[in-house]
Design a protein around this nucleic acid. Structure first.
Length: 571
RNA sequence: UGGGGUGUCGUCAAGCGGUAAGACACAGGCCUUUGACGCCUGCAUUCGUAGGUUCGAAUCCUACCACCCCAGCCA
């Protein structure tokens, strides 16, 4: 990757603004609970792409480590070979790096611990704390009881140590078919917490693993793997989402029973939800598989890769994660907060440019046919260090169709017949004539006259000209495709109604490709990581996938705030 | 009917017994060669409800109510 995401220091939060997890950690540090050490981990399963919800967890885990001189491990929770792929681990690494975080040497895989995990299981069996259960999956479910009724003990619960050991060894050796036996912890079938009703530790899976190949046909379950992996890595604080709160008693039971050298503390927080989108990997995968989006990195997807392609910056993502806070209550953050984060960043950092998305030709009738002139324009209104550039003006230009109205409503201060407006950094022009297609009545072009004394856009006699339009030279502009994106779903919470699939709430207008846009020529030199503000329109970046030589495609990252649109809506 | 959680502005979110931060959104106004940006102002006498303790409660106690999660050999 390039360098833009490589400033982890900027991820450090204001220490004054503390959430409950940072408060706990500060307290632990004060009490020297883990020997004054903070070690966290980000533990994705490589079965899909990372999304913005993961970004919250990444910023938390790496952020907390950074703030406390600790380290954060990147550990892949790869215990289910049937769902996991090496391609996903690569994309995950890329995304974490891009966000600006560095795991250094601390790259781990749960699959690296398979041997140790197995040894611990043997130890559990020897302690009489685990047994091989030969009930079928359905039977196990029946024996488990319900939420309100206790479960029943498996008839295999009291197998002898020797038999358990023998069976477990043979399970590993591949003597049994999938589903015939599992290893279970022996805890309490009557516990109110279903996770304590003799949870399954190992299942037989004759599947090839992306890292261990065919070495194993026995794979450990998440609940068993995670605490031990944390302990092996001497994690101090194991931060996860709310749904694992019920699993914590088992987490603690396991590490207490095994007397592992370290006993990390699991703390749960609420996962991120955003309005107008879905967040689960399963649902994102469905969108990809059913071709409702172009892929995991479709710019409308709130995956890290989608947001990257859309033009979001790592800094904006971090700032967003900072803004939303951290708590235990379930919530849904307004999409506007995310948009605010990227606008804030890009407002400061993106050079300005002019682009006309829906061109309307304007002929300046009193401007000499052959004449052309270079006009100078600031690349940024507030930051002179970003320099200036030249744009060429001539007799034929394009303006935005939206910027002209034959019958302007009140408060519309753009172009209209007889009206004068300013062309940004160029001249004041007045509309004299509207040329229409005789057949359709469609406006073809505008004839205007310019005031030669207004070069640069100044008003020579101090007359008030309220409207300023962006424009592009018809002779010099380059052509490009510009893709306008809107929210992927048309309701705030696509998952609200359990009877209706979230898929039925897809916004059919979430992608609007405009194929004949005119851009100022300088934009031809844009690179994939460049971001621009197209004045009065929004922030845009070159599409990293579909751009071809001499055929640029720009993505709209986000619009500018538009109070004119608001006036229209309220009217 | 079991177990685990959570309830503070429209949306997030601080607050941890001393009299409701901040952000987004929203509404006005100023500024403006981007109707952008920036700036100013307003926006919870009230913290799920009801009682109680206290000089004083969002913070402590009691009861109730609402919502979320858990019955994968997924993570």
């Amino acid at each position: 990757m390039h360098t833009e995401g490589s400033n982890p220091q900027s991820a450090i939060r204001n220490p004054q603004s503390r959430d409950f997890i940072r408060t706990i950690i500060a307290e632990d540090l004060k009490n020297n609970k883990h020997g004054g050490r903070v070690t966290t981990r980000f533990p994705p399963e490589p079965n899909g792409f990372l999304h913005i919800g993961h970004a919250k967890s990444i910023c938390l885990n790496f952020g907390v480590a950074l703030e406390n001189n600790g380290v954060c491990h990147l550990r892949f929770d790869d215990t289910n070979p049937s769902k996991e792929e090496i391609a996903y681990v690569e994309s995950i690494k890329k995304d974490v790096k891009w966000l600006g975080f560095d795991w250094g040497d601390n790259l781990f895989f749960a699959s690296d611990y398979f041997e140790q995990l197995y040894d611990y299981a043997v130890q559990l069996i020897k302690m009489g704390k685990a047994y091989v259960c030969s009930l079928s999956a359905e039977e196990i479910r029946e024996y488990r009881g319900t939420l309100t009724e206790p479960g029943r003990e498996s008839p295999f619960r009291n197998r002898s140590l020797e038999e358990n050991l023998d069976l477990f060894t043979r399970m590993r050796a591949g003597e049994f078919a999938d589903g015939t036996h599992v290893l279970r912890a022996k805890i309490d079938m009557s516990s109110g917490n279903i996770n304590m009703r003799d949870p399954v530790l190992y299942r037989i899976l004759h599947a090839s693993h992306h890292r261990t190949g065919d070495k194993w046909c026995l794979y450990p379950m998440y609940d068993y793997t995670h605490p031990i992996s944390d302990a092996i890595e001497k994690i101090t604080h194991s931060l996860c989402t709310l749904e694992f709160e019920d699993h914590r008693p088992f987490y603690d039971w396991l590490l207490d029973t095994l007397q592992t050298p370290a006993h990390p503390q699991q703390i749960e927080f609420a996962r991120l939800n955003l309005t107008y989108t879905v967040m689960s990997k399963r649902k994102l995968l469905k969108l990809v598989n059913e071709k409702r989006v172009s892929g995991w990195d479709d710019p409308r997807m709130l995956t890290i890769s989608g947001l990257r392609r859309r033009g979001y910056t790592p800094a904006a993502m971090r700032s967003f994660c900072d803004t939303i806070g951290l708590a235990k209550r379930e919530s849904r953050v307004d999409m506007g907060v995310l948009e605010n984060a990227i606008r804030n960043d890009l407002n400061d950092t993106a050079p300005r440019a002019m682009a006309v998305l829906r061109p309307l030709k304007v002929v300046i009738t009193n401007y000499p046919q052959e004449q052309e002139e270079e006009l100078e324009i600031d690349n940024h209104p507030k930051n002179p260090e970003m320099g200036k550039r030249q744009v060429t003006f001539c007799r034929e230009i394009y303006i935005e169709q939206d910027d002209f109205l034959e019958e302007p409503p009140k408060k519309f201060f753009r172009l209209a017949p007889g009206r004068e407006v300013r062309l940004r950094a160029a001249y004041l022009i007045t509309c004299d004539k509207v040329v229409k297609d005789e057949q359709s009545g469609k406006i073809i072009e505008l004839h205007c006259t310019y005031d030669p004394a207004s070069r640069g856009g100044s008003s020579p006699d101090g007359r008030k000209v309220k409207g300023t339009l962006h424009w592009v030279s018809a002779r010099h502009a380059i052509s490009a495709e510009v893709r306008l994106y809107d929210r992927l779903f048309n309701v705030e919470n696509p998952e609200a109604d359990k009877e209706t699939s979230f898929m039925s709430h897809l916004n059919s207008n979430s992608l609007l490709p405009l194929t004949d846009c005119r851009l100022e020529p300088g934009l031809a030199a844009a690179g994939v990581n460049d971001r621009f503000q197209f004045e009065r329109l929004g922030y845009f970046c070159l599409d990293s996938v579909d751009t071809a030589p001499a055929r640029p495609v720009f993505n709209r990252t986000v619009t500018l705030r538009d109070s004119w649109e608001k006036i229209g809506k309220n009217a």
